[in-house]
Nucleic acid binder design. Structure first.
Lengths: 333, 333
DNA sequence: ATCCAGTGTGGAACCGGTTCCCTTCGCTGA
DNA sequence: TCAGCGAAGGGAACCGGTTCCACACTGGAT
């Protein structure tokens, strides 16, 4: 493996000049630049990244923390962050660790302080927890996806509003007996889930339907949505006419459960989700669309801004969401 | 931020001794070690990883390449690799890039040669392609998940055997009109898909059913399996009595399509998949189980072996797979 | 008493870049 | 004619660790 000294020697210049020629910083004549570049080419030189990092203080790496890879939202978010980072020549160091896992603590205590990352994108951080304090300690730009404290950048849809809009869509169609599936069950659920439950309650309250509020816990996965829906829909006397799923995975689980129970969707039961999951169209699911991949792009953009200007004010961005009407919701009979 | 020189000064020893005390290499007296450790504690010292990497030549980072994050197999594989690497104190640099994407080439040309990774785990590498040649150039241990050349480590289930076992299960039940869904369609499909098609053909041939071979292309996703199944099952006169899905996502898409068409599973149609996807149980899907998470662990183990002993012979491991009978397959009527 | 092996420690080189500071040179403008 | 400036390039310091090597000291064997 050749070093910059080899390149410099072959081009007949000093290390300093070779470095300037290759990085494009400082004064280098056209002729010298060409000589250095062809020498580098000939030796198939590639800068040793540890040496560059040590000298510049930049690692060109961003740490990304997600609580789960299997959930669509996080895998899309990750894909978006990956695309944006790759474009800018940054590496993505992945930490996929469930929220309450034992291996989560050491990441914040030992791994992040090692000055290995120029910045951190953190999804699934419990609000105002110990973890947030640790993130602030490392003095690097941080972008939270979801909850946040004022001292960091953040991006998220308005979860409460999304759930409220979903609920109001059902109310507008004439439903009054509307149940909510999801929230408060195990590791795969997130803080955002709690805000969605709150949005559902608020919409029910506003419509004077507070006595009809019903929440069936589920963890945010399709099987858990399926199980919760089987329970909820099993008794035809207590069955609601409409269901709001905390996310599309849960809503799809509910659609499948309804079919299995012989309940027609949307004629006998309306189901609405939140997310616009890749499978939503296949199930003709009405939903509130959000675009986690775009949120990943946006998170990277915010991080880069914080890198360029460490004193920039922190941004708190509300990502777009919108009702997408398909064929899983209709007026009650 | 404090350096090892600060720690050494506070403990009243030289940098060399402080380094030895903290790393545990070389001779250091018990008393000195304690002094250095409490100094490090007091200054909340953490070694600068770029400096360590430059000095040792090890980055403590492994690059992992996957073609897609949304497919269950790869997200499980990634989760497994992450767990195993975190345990060993390694970082995971993620490259999630579709097989035929434009951003794929630069990764092999520019990113990998930068000597940033101690090793590479590559899934979704086209066999014997340019990419494999580039992987060999960087002189670091490589583990391929899926196809390989002799010069690298590799791990995979026997895809052909898995598809053959699935097909034979249907033949044993008495089916003769067995179609295959999947293979040869777009980016989300993989080389392994081709070998599964071959396994299906081989099993059909061996049973003298070669004239009944039918392959409907699909890309490995649930919606694509759904669409292909709707086409295949739409005409009741040409409908097969059993279907092999290239993977569980496709098979589940087929189960949903059958329900939508009013075809009872398993009485009127048997469906079998390959993978044992997290949703397989919910659909009572008979399948061939493989455990990509374990394969991720195993890949890391192989990589670490290559790191410890660069001259070790390359391993080619066939991962376990086994028939799991649930309730989506039955004898034909 | 002498030799030697095993411990313990410090100085300095080294890993491979980047960048500060200084010198030189050619040209412009007063 | 000469001060002054910008361009070009070299030497050396520096980033923060690890490790080689030299040296000092101890205690046991000869």
């Amino acid at each position: 493996m050749s070093t910059i000294a080899d390149v410099a020697a072959r081009a007949g210049v000093s290390k300093a000049t070779a470095s300037r020629a290759l990085s494009g910083r400082g004064y280098v004549s056209r002729a010298t630049r060409d000589k250095v570049e062809s020498a580098a080419q000939a030796l198939s030189y590639a800068a040793h990244s540890s040496a560059t990092s040590l000298a510049t203080g930049r690692t060109q790496t961003v740490g990304v923390i997600v609580p789960a890879l299997g959930r669509w939202f996080f895998s899309e978010l990750l894909a978006g962050a990956q695309e944006a980072l790759l474009d800018r020549g940054y590496d993505l160091a992945l930490f996929a660790v469930p929220e309450h896992s034992d291996s989560r603590r050491p990441i914040f205590d030992d791994v992040l302080p090692r000055r290995r990352y120029d910045g951190i994108i953190a999804a699934g951080i419990e609000p105002r927890a110990y973890e947030m304090a640790q993130l602030l300690r490392i003095r690097r730009p941080v972008v939270c996806v979801g909850p946040y404290v004022d001292e960091v950048n953040a991006i998220s849809i308005d979860d409460a509003a999304a759930a409220a809009i979903a609920t109001e869509h059902l109310i507008d169609l004439g439903h009054t007996d509307i149940a909510f599936i999801g929230g408060g069950a195990g590791d795969a659920s997130s803080f955002g889930d709690a805000r969605r439950v709150a949005g559902y309650r608020a919409a029910m309250d506003a419509a004077g339907l507070q006595q009809n509020v019903r929440v069936s816990p589920a963890s945010g996965t399709m099987p858990s949505g399926f199980d919760a829906a089987v329970d909820l829909l099993g008794n035809r006397r207590t069955r609601p006419t409409a269901v709001v799923g905390v996310c599309d995975e849960v809503a799809i689980g509910a659609v499948i459960a309804a079919r299995r129970l012989g309940i027609a969707v949307p004629t006998a039961l309306s189901v609405i989700g939140i997310d616009d999951h890749q499978h939503a169209a296949m199930f003709a699911l009405t939903t509130i669309r959000q675009q986690p991949r775009e949120q990943g792009h946006e998170a990277v953009r915010m991080l880069m801004r914080g890198l360029e200007d460490p004193d920039a004010a922190h941004e708190h961005i509300t990502a777009a969401s919108a009702l997408v009407v398909r064929n899983s919701t209709a007026a009650p009979r």
